[in-house]
């Protein structure tokens, strides 16, 4: 896919900022051994409230959820930043964000203990980031700016 300089820099920047966000969130959780999503999940709302609360109340499930969440965030962020397996990273990131969204959907009539940082109706920043990842997936740039370029080059040479 051919990109103009503007398009390329816009897409790469978007990939970097999302990668940054994921990586930092993940690493902070990994560095804090007592971190757990338990309280957040206990505060769930919407259609899947029960599922998330079940997770929160089940200690062995929570161990898995916490580990996968923290490492998932860090690895997805890392992949987007360095530009390796970025399409897989984008898809996994979308799945993770979908979970966050479904646990706290900003639907009218649902109130959460943890206050929202803005006013939302159905669409919130989690959903916006989710769709931004869809853009990353649809317009991959890692073969131009990112480590995927090494393989891309090699493949081109072999062809």
């Amino acid at each position: 896919m051919e990109f103009s300089r503007t398009k390329l820099s816009a897409l790469v920047l978007l990939r970097f900022v999302i990668g940054w966000h994921f990586f930092y969130e993940g690493m902070v959780k990994i560095l804090n051994p007592s971190w757990s999503a338990k309280t957040y999940l206990l505060d769930s709302g919407g259609f899947f409230k029960g599922v998330f609360e079940w997770m929160a109340r089940n200690d062995s499930v929570m161990t898995v959820v916490d580990t996968m969440n923290a490492w998932g965030l860090a690895l997805i962020g890392f992949s987007l930043l360095i530009g390796l397996f970025t399409r897989a990273g984008a898809i996994s990131g979308m799945v993770l964000l979908l979970f966050y969204y479904l646990s706290h959907p900003p639907f009218p009539g649902i109130e959460y203990l943890f206050p929202s940082d803005g006013s939302y109706f159905i669409i919130n920043k989690t959903l916006v980031e989710l769709f931004a990842l869809y853009v990353i997936y649809a317009f991959p740039t890692a073969h131009i700016i990112g480590m995927e370029r090494f393989w891309a080059t090699e493949n081109k040479m072999k062809a």
């Binding site: 530009g83 080059t153 040479m157």
Partner: peptide, 30 residues
């Protein structure tokens, strides 16, 4: 093979290294 990865490729391929450095510093502060 020598030409396979040019200087330009290297720069573009590792463009995020400074970003990772900045993030690493942030994590260290944290």
């Amino acid at each position: 093979d020598k030409k396979g990865i040019s200087r330009r490729d290297l720069l573009a391929g590792l463009a995020s290294l400074p970003v990772l450095g900045a993030l690493g510093y942030g994590l260290y502060l944290h």
